[in-house]
Simulated assay, not measured.
Amino acid sequence: MATRAEWAERVERWERSGLSAEKFARREGYSPKQLYWWRWKLRAEGISPPSTALTQAPCFLPVHVVADASPVVAEPIEIALPNGRVVRVRPGFDPATLERVLALAAEETPC
């Protein structure tokens, strides 16, 4: 017959295992009712096994990586044309509009 100290150790191992009382008791060869009763008895006497939160090995949680939500401040680009004109283009420009602006700015006639 197991002693109070042996049952305290069994209850502690059961709580650390994360298994149900049924699975743990079946694996160890005794009744789940015994585990429940000893846990109740030990706690009633003020001899509670450590909390499973403190004794369980840390577990890893799934992590989902998402795109960085912080805005990226892109610098405007400058296009220097052969005729000496410079076109500054800010982020988010419309490509069709830029194409028309460049065609006009590339002309040799003064603005």
Rank of each mutant, 00 (worst) to 15 (best):
A2F: 09
T3V: 13
A5D: 12
W7C: 12
W7D: 04
A8Q: 13
R10Y: 02
R10T: 11
V11A: 12
V11F: 11
V11P: 11
V11T: 01
R13F: 01
W14D: 02
E15Q: 15
E15A: 13
E15C: 07
G18Y: 03
S20F: 09
A21E: 05
E22V: 12
E22R: 15
K23N: 09
F24S: 08
F24P: 08
R27W: 01
R27K: 14
E28V: 07
E28Q: 15
E28D: 10
S31Y: 04
S31R: 14
P32H: 07
K33H: 07
K33C: 00
Q34E: 07
L35A: 07
L35I: 08
Y36L: 06
Y36Q: 08
W37Q: 05
W38V: 04
W38R: 01
W38A: 11
R39F: 06
W40G: 12
W40Q: 14
W40R: 14
W40Y: 12
L42F: 11
L42G: 13
R43A: 15
E45Y: 05
E45W: 06
E45H: 10
I47K: 15
S48N: 11
A53R: 11
A53I: 10
A53T: 06
Q56D: 06
A57P: 04
P58L: 09
C59E: 08
C59S: 13
L61E: 09
V63G: 02
A67S: 06
A69M: 09
S70E: 08
P71V: 12
V72N: 01
V72D: 01
V72G: 00
V72Y: 01
V73S: 11
A74S: 10
A74V: 07
A74T: 07
I77W: 04
I77S: 13
I79M: 05
A80K: 06
A80M: 02
L81M: 07
P82C: 11
N83H: 04
N83L: 05
N83V: 01
N83W: 03
G84Q: 08
R85W: 03
R85H: 06
V87A: 14
R88V: 15
V89W: 09
F93A: 10
D94T: 04
P95A: 12
P95W: 08
A96V: 10
L98D: 00
E99P: 00
R100P: 00
R100Y: 02
R100H: 05
V101N: 08
L102H: 04
A103C: 06
A103V: 05
E107Q: 14
P110K: 05
P110A: 11
